[in-house]
Amino acid sequence: MKNLKIDETKYTPEMTFDPETLVIAIKGKSYPENTEEFYKPAFEWLEKNLSDLGKKGLTVNLELIYFNSSSSKALMNFFDMLEESVDNGDNITVNWMYEEDNESILEYGEEFLEDIETLPFNLVPLKSRE
């Protein structure tokens, strides 16, 4: 299983999908011009590898400081996919990290949590960097 690494740009996050450490990390801003196209490699990777990783126990760390509305849709699709995997008996935990004073990211996290039923989803405060 190959890892997937996509570098950060001014408007897209850094993504690291590592089958060895069993951690998926997405960090930064997300407002690509074409969101579907940007996240396509990530979703393709997940389709191939998610069930194997879920059995071993996968951690998903999300540390987004800003995302646009179409990225919010992509995240919902992502959580739906993870939840389906959990419903099939896999072990996945999502950590939604937000800077303490970024109430907007916290609220988005809370709203995702409301729409999630079985996927373990933690809201994790971080010290503000500014």
């Binding site: 646009n68 509305s69 179409s70 919010s72 992509a74």
Partner: peptide, 9 residues
């Protein structure tokens, strides 16, 4: 062309 969420957001 996006998610159709922009104006609601």
């Amino acid at each position: 062309k996006g998610a159709g969420l922009g104006l609601i957001d």
